[in-house]
Design a protein around this nucleic acid. Sequence first.
DNA 1: AAAACGGGGGC
DNA 2: GCCCCAGTTTT
Length: 197
Amino acid sequence: MKSLSGLYTLRVFEDRDPYRVLIRTILSQRTRDENTDQASANLFAKYKNIEEVANAPIEDLEVLVRVAGFYRVKARRIKEVSNLILDQYGGVVPDNMKELLELPGVGRKTANCVLVYAFQEPAIPVDTHVHRISNLWGIVNTKTPEETEEELVKIVPKDFWIDLNDLMVQFGQTVCKPTYPQCEQCPIVELCDYDSS
DNA sequence: AAAACGGGGGC
DNA sequence: GCCCCAGTTTT
């Protein structure tokens, strides 16, 4: 763990095993940290590796990841993605965008998270927080997360890519929230036109 | 472009 | 009790 500007502590994954990072990231889709952590802990307490998950009954997976929400979809995709990685890649998670995007349940955001957290490769995972705040601050003027990623990659120095998502998401969850924003806690409230928008 | 998936927490 | 939320896939 390291801190930036003393404002937020980077939530660097302790477990950078690519398979676990991938599964954890799928579980985190549209889901808060606490529930993601719980579901991930449940899953890997019972199943130790990709082979065990691939062979697990879907009903058992559903129970274990239920707390993460969207649990039927996630359980099915976790089983599918595990089988596919075993069949096509010998159980090794791909380390490139093209092959990651071909995996079930993996879109641009999840693929970028795997590149950043499992392979320490510079990338910018753009979720709703990054998209919203980047536009709110006028860093970009975009309609879709994909456009936001394209623009941020052009504008933001590469040294910041890996940490950008983590810091913006924490800021977005605690201060610059999509509803009930805590503007009195915001360090740049005077530079922001949130109230007038 | 819009719908569907979902439990947990804030209000 | 109602409403919102660290996306991706399908229609």
